[in-house]
Nucleic acid binder design. Structure first.
Length: 224
DNA sequence: TCATTAAATTGTT
DNA sequence: AACAATTTAATGA
């Protein structure tokens, strides 16, 4: 980095802030890097930062009492998460793990709360984000029951190309078939077959450790 | 830069 | 779940 990049200006919620609000946000921001496989936080941690993915990929997951791993969501470039724990001053309810090398931007709790109290632009962003995620979770519950495994994989993949949630993400995502399986709630074998099927239909290109999406909207509508 | 080796990921049963 | 094949990343000449 030749000139220090302005994390605040890069953040997707910055667009609607006033100069004054932006300056306030800038003071509460810091940056951290995590290597692939490392925990960003554990369930039960009291981590008082609102967190955004500058570059990379993380998953929000938990381990069931039976010891079974479960992934709820992935977050990639430009996505922000953890407002629930920060708002309520609660301990984190899930593990957050870096799926690949990741750089995170972190906004301190006090700055977050200040923006929450004072900035209408910031609140507009929060409502939009919460609404978008809610829609996604509802859709997930719905299609978990009615769609076949290929469609589940397709729709879970399309998450990462949601422009509202991840405006800065590109068309390729670095994720293994195993991780995608955890996310979609299917076995690795099923992911493998699904990816081949989707590739045959020309919706994506599967390489190893990497998937390039050709037609994201078709993936999000996929059913059969 | 190239060859060798280890590790990760994929493909198949 | 286990195994083999393939690709990448790391190492050292």
């Amino acid at each position: 980095m030749s000139t220090k990049r302005d994390i605040a200006l890069d953040a997707i919620w910055a667009a609607e802030l006033t100069d004054d609000e932006l300056e306030r946000a800038r003071r509460g921001l810091s940056e951290r890097s995590f290597s692939k496989g490392s925990y960003i936080c554990h369930r039960g941690d009291r981590l008082d930062h609102w967190t955004g993915v500058t570059d990379g990929l993380i998953k929000i997951s938990a381990i069931s009492a039976a010891g079974k791993a479960m992934t709820f969501a992935g977050v990639t470039d430009g996505g922000w998460f953890g407002e629930g724990s920060v708002l309520k001053g609660e301990r984190r309810q899930y593990d957050v793990v870096a799926i690949r090398d990741t750089r995170l931007a972190m906004l301190s709790r006090s700055s977050f709360l200040w923006l929450f109290e004072n900035s209408t632009g910031f609140n507009r962003f929060l409502v939009r984000q919460l609404n978008e995620r809610m829609g996604q979770f509802i859709a997930t519950i719905e299609y978990d029951r009615i769609l076949g495994p290929t469609a589940r994989v397709a729709r879970n993949l399309s998450w990462f190309f949601n422009r509202t949630l991840y405006p800065r993400a590109g068309t390729t995502i670095e994720i293994s078939q195993e991780e995608l399986g955890l996310l979609a709630g299917v076995s690795r074998q099923v992911v493998n077959r699904a990816l081949r099927a989707l590739e045959d239909e020309g919706l994506l290109k599967a390489e190893h450790g990497r998937i390039t999406v050709v037609d994201a909207s078709a993936l999000s509508r996929y059913d059969s």
